[in-house]
Design a protein around this nucleic acid. Structure first.
Lengths: 224, 224
DNA sequence: CTGTGTGAAGGAGTTCACAGCG
DNA sequence: CGCTGTGAACTCCTTCACACAG
């Protein structure tokens, strides 16, 4: 089912979903690819092509039924029920992400939060009790969780990922700078969000040309 | 200078930089594109092509001088000195990002943290005093800051971005779900990090095929 | 006449193949 | 020989153009 769908298309689906949610909030039932283009920033042709990957959802002459398309996209992504996820690593980033999940990520339910620090294990975060990492397996199996977020220290990332995959996790959102290696046979997918890289590459666009040229002169002395 | 450099190349430069830092830590002076390929995961040809965008830094037969290449990349990105940035919005995500910046992002110095909440303005975070947003302009000008991180509530994002651009900021890392609009004439660059989208698109890969097909049946009833 | 779905054309980025330098 | 730098081939995705449906 749905083989050969480009990665970029999958990345755009949640954007469409969010736009459709906004339309529903405004009691709009029908939307054209052109109108979706205006609110998402992607071209109308691209939107039509993306949706065509999964079948023809639109009606020529009128557009797409908002609620139907929303349900379709949810089903494609795998959000047909509140999808349950867990998070490992309750440092500042982990706590921030917990709050973020609870407040701003629709269709996703955080059902487990784990750490190894005895000082935080047993405390509660937004009503959820933080458990020791050794408790992961039963919870993952009970809730049939497929997706996990890793916000542990870099050095623990690989080991935690292996434990998660062992427990049946198939998709990992990795906030560490460790390049997590998974065996092909594990069929697990790791997506990296590296804040340091995001920020450092942004620098390129922040520097005014005059400064870069000035910097170059200096660097030629330093480097050469 | 450096016109027509693909966006994807800029995104890879910080990865190379991190790899080179690791080599320096291990007292390695020379590295080939093949060795860089092993530690970064990008192909050796791609690495050579990327670096060729900025000139020939390597030596045929031996490879790249690690310290020289590192200086070159730093200069290209604009990290030739500790680049100073500011952050606006001291909620959980803002605090997490501050800590992250201080501990894990090399070559970047956080020089300003801003909020509008009187309860946090005046308090300190990792030694840095949180200031009121109205104080941004003098600090940006004093430190000649070009880059800012936005972690404010969604509804304030556009207004904060406009104030920042007004103050001379040219690159913004936007953690809100608001699609910030900038006038072409402002010549500012906005990079979005949308945690909800990252997580939701990950779901697609987390769902096992059998489950997606099952969900499809249900959704057909719901949607059709 | 409006808007979808889609083959064809075009563009961007990656991989290949190899010339040439150390 | 080993490794860089680079034109050429190729792959992937986007944009264009239009047939066809309501």
């Amino acid at each position: 089912m749905y083989r050969n769908v480009p990665n970029v298309v999958i990345k755009r689906l949640p954007v469409y979903l969010r736009a459709l949610d906004n339309q529903i909030r405004n009691d709009i039932n029908l939307i054209s690819s052109r109108e979706l283009s205006l609110v998402t920033g992607f071209s109308a042709e691209q939107i039509r092509k993306d949706l065509a990957c999964f079948g023809g959802f639109g009606t020529p002459g009128s557009g797409y039924r908002v609620d139907f398309l929303r349900n379709k996209i949810m089903q494609i992504i795998g959000l047909h029920r509140d999808t349950q996820i867990i998070i490992v690593g309750m440092g500042h980033l982990g706590i921030a992400f917990c709050r973020y999940t609870f407040r701003k990520i629709p269709y996703v339910e955080l059902v487990g939060a784990f750490d190894i620090d005895p000082a935080v294990v047993g405390t509660k975060i937004y009503g959820l009790e933080i458990q020791h990492v050794s408790e992961m397996k039963p919870l993952i199996e009970e809730h049939q969780v497929n997706v996990a977020v890793i916000t542990v220290p870099d050095k623990d990332a690989q080991s935690v990922a292996e434990q998660l995959i062992e427990c049946g996790i198939t998709a990992i959102l990795n906030f560490t700078t460790t390049n997590i290696l998974v065996k092909k046979t594990d069929n697990a997918y790791v997506h990296n969000v590296d804040l340091a890289l995001e920020l450092q590459s942004l620098m390129y666009y922040g520097i005014k040309e005059c400064e870069r040229v000035a910097g170059q002169g200096i660097s030629d002395l330093v480097g050469g």
